[in-house]
């Protein structure tokens, strides 16, 4: 009733979205939209030129994000978003290259690439939506599914142990590592801002509910209850130790920024060699 009397107002992030592709495919209550919103808010806050951003994703629910943003974007094969992004970044170091994808895409089928990108300290921001299962294919066991919880391929409870994503990327050499949940959209956007300004490999895990599958199989309640629950069980400690940030059923979830260090970055080193050997001031492979 009220809205009928108001002039139509554009969404504050409309200019950063391909509005002609809406509505999106994500389920009502899904956390991916919140994470994407935080990312776009960070882009807006930093006043980045949309033409200078490339968003690359793999396959899965989160992988669909690349199709909704008004940047150059590539929806790659399953698991290969990071190496494809690496190709873009090496050829055009002036572009901000961001990988936005899911936990299965980045840590199961694509697991090798994330540890090597972190090891190289490649200037890349990876935003990983961790929803504890494979959503697109119907809720199967993923590399992050908590021990003993239920999925369609662990009908008797999960007998595997999940990765601790922040500890894994920290150990592999990432310069910046953070974790938030979708109950922390403001803090998440701030960490993304920081990561976008960081020269090096940045990894941000976003814990998000898969309300249709994982949450339902594990009786976690309706979306509002889950968001409330995520807020309640999340804790920020003064000494952020990623090794203690395992996710276990019934435990607290440690959130915040775990790593923020400086070390030589891959693309800068690569161009140092190219400039030395070619004797030319090259800052891009595209002429």
């Amino acid at each position: 009733m009220l809205s009928e009397n108001l002039p139509p107002k554009a969404h504050p992030l409309e200019k950063l979205l391909r509005t002609d592709r809406l509505p999106h495919i994500w389920c009502p209550g899904c956390g991916i939209g919140i994470a994407l919103n935080s990312f776009l808010r960070a882009v807006k806050k930093l006043n980045l030129d949309p033409k200078s951003i490339v968003l690359i994703s793999g396959i899965g629910c989160s992988g669909r994000a690349s199709g909704y943003v008004a940047f150059d974007s590539f929806h790659t094969t399953h698991g290969r978003a990071i190496p494809l992004a690496m190709g873009v970044k090496i050829a055009r170091p002036d572009l901000k290259v961001v990988v936005f994808s899911g936990d299965g895409d980045l840590f199961a089928i694509g697991g090798n690439h994330i540890i090597h990108a972190a090891r190289r300290n490649l200037d890349l921001l990876v935003i990983c939506i961790n929803n504890f299962n494979y959503g697109m294919t119907g809720g199967q066991l993923g590399p992050t599914t908590p021990f003993s919880s239920y999925t369609t391929t662990t009908p008797y409870g999960n007998i595997e142990h999940p990765f601790n994503l922040v500890h894994l990327t920290a150990a592999a050499g990432a310069s910046f590592v953070a974790r938030w949940t979708v109950a922390h959209p403001i803090q998440l956007a701030r960490s993304i801002e920081k990561a976008l300004n960081k020269r090096g490999f940045s990894f941000i895990e976003v814990i998000a509910p898969c309300v249709t599958l994982y949450a339902r199989y594990n009786k976690l309640g309706r979306p509002p209850q889950i968001i409330k629950y995520l807020k309640e069980i999340s804790v920020i400690e003064k000494s952020m130790d990623s090794s203690k940030a395992d996710i276990k059923i019934g435990n607290k979830i440690f959130v915040g920024e775990f790593v923020d260090v400086e070390r030589p970055e891959y693309v800068s080193e690569l161009y140092r060699v190219i400039r030395e050997k070619s004797g030319r001031k090259i800052d891009s492979l595209v002429r």
Partner: peptide, 16 residues
């Protein structure tokens, strides 16, 4: 080799 070919696809899409 999975990442090698993925990388050159990404690079080619910048014009290299």
């Amino acid at each position: 080799e999975l990442s090698s070919i993925a990388l050159i696809i990404g690079a080619s899409y910048t014009g290299v």
